[in-house]
Design a protein around this nucleic acid. Structure first.
Length: 130
DNA sequence: CCTGTGACCGAAG
DNA sequence: TCTTCGGCCACAG
């Protein structure tokens, strides 16, 4: 049963029906990212996994992208989210890249010119409870 | 409907 | 380590 788009593992914070995502997904992403402390890092995949399904990792990125528009509200430390390769997910040199780089260095995280960050050493582990 | 695109992931070589 | 490739989900054209 529940074989809609593809047979996925048991999501959590996701839907049983057609859509894997359900309204409110973005907010859950924001809540989690807010848990990442200053100077720590996490990945789109880790957030997705914590929400129940790593295959929606792209949507974690979409959620953060949407953040740029609506503006206000409690701030979300989006700069602490990088990709699983341990690099900033923007083309090196692009405005977005530089913005994230500065935000990270401001909190003591080193960023190489090609966007690499010390993920292994600073990777944050989300608390099991929730 | 089919295609392309996105702040992605992981296995394989 | 790095690169390539197939998968994945939603949405706009």
């Amino acid at each position: 049963m529940a074989k809609k788009p593809s047979d996925r593992a048991e999501p959590f914070g996701l839907d049983d029906e057609y859509r894997v995502l359900r309204p409110g997904f973005n907010q859950r992403v924001y809540e989690l990212v807010r848990q990442v402390p200053r100077g720590a890092l996490t990945t789109y995949g880790d957030v997705a996994r914590t929400l129940g399904a790593v295959q929606v990792s792209r949507h974690v990125g979409n959620a953060l992208a949407a953040l740029r528009d609506h503006g206000g509200g409690e701030p979300v430390p989006w700069q602490r989210v990088v990709n699983s390769k341990g690099k900033i997910s923007f083309p090196p040199g692009s405005p977005s890249f530089e913005r994230q780089r500065e935000a990270l260095e401001e909190e003591g995280v080193t960023v190489s010119d090609d966007g690499r960050v010390p993920l292994r050493e600073r990777r944050w582990t989300f608390v099991p409870c929730d």
